[in-house]
Simulated assay, not measured.
Amino acid sequence: MSWGILQLIQKAIPPIIQQSIPSISTTFLTALISTSSVTAFAAFGITEKFEMCIRVRLWSARILLVLVIGFSKRLSCLFVNSKVVLCIVGTYFLIVSVGYILNTVTNCYLGALNGIGKPSKSIFLMIFYYIVVQMPLDYLLYHLGFGLNGI
């Protein structure tokens, strides 16, 4: 291989790893929630649909975030007609709403690390957050009796 291709591969690997880590975490959460109930799994599917809309980095997505958090139960009726699912979705967005602010700050910091040419530090922080902290904590809180609220 030529030197240019090797440099391209070196530059591509950190973003590939960074994009994979949240997906690994989501797969873990999906497996954990699937052990709970079909209702919980349905609620998780709905929250993931809403969060895909929220993850867009535009100002209109911020407005959508407020609407989803404020009206998640009513919006869930678009997908399913189950009061239990609606309650789970509503509780989920009440719990994680503060996390969206922290997530925005974290993404800015990780982006800054990438921008100044330190992607390895950014990858380390993502691995630490998702794989060392979040996944074990989700598992532990779920099995300590907090159930879905622990996740």
Rank of each mutant, 00 (worst) to 15 (best):
S2V: 05
I5E: 11
L6N: 11
I9R: 10
Q10A: 15
K11Q: 13
I16Q: 05
I16V: 13
I16C: 11
I17Y: 02
Q18M: 10
Q18K: 09
Q18C: 06
Q18Y: 03
S23Q: 06
S25R: 05
T27I: 11
T30K: 13
A31R: 10
A31D: 05
L32Y: 03
T39C: 12
A43M: 05
E48H: 07
E48M: 10
E48G: 10
M52I: 10
C53N: 07
I54R: 08
W59R: 06
S60K: 00
A61L: 01
I63M: 01
L64Q: 02
L65I: 00
V66S: 06
L67I: 07
L67A: 09
S72L: 01
R74A: 14
S76T: 04
V80T: 08
K83L: 09
V84Y: 02
V85S: 08
L86V: 07
T91R: 10
V98G: 11
V98C: 12
Y100L: 07
I101H: 03
L102E: 01
N103I: 04
V105N: 02
Y109W: 08
L110C: 03
L110V: 03
I116Y: 13
K118W: 02
P119L: 02
S120N: 03
S120D: 03
F124C: 13
F124Q: 11
F124S: 14
I127A: 15
F128T: 15
I131W: 05
P136F: 01
L144H: 10
G145F: 01
L148V: 14
G150E: 04
I151A: 15
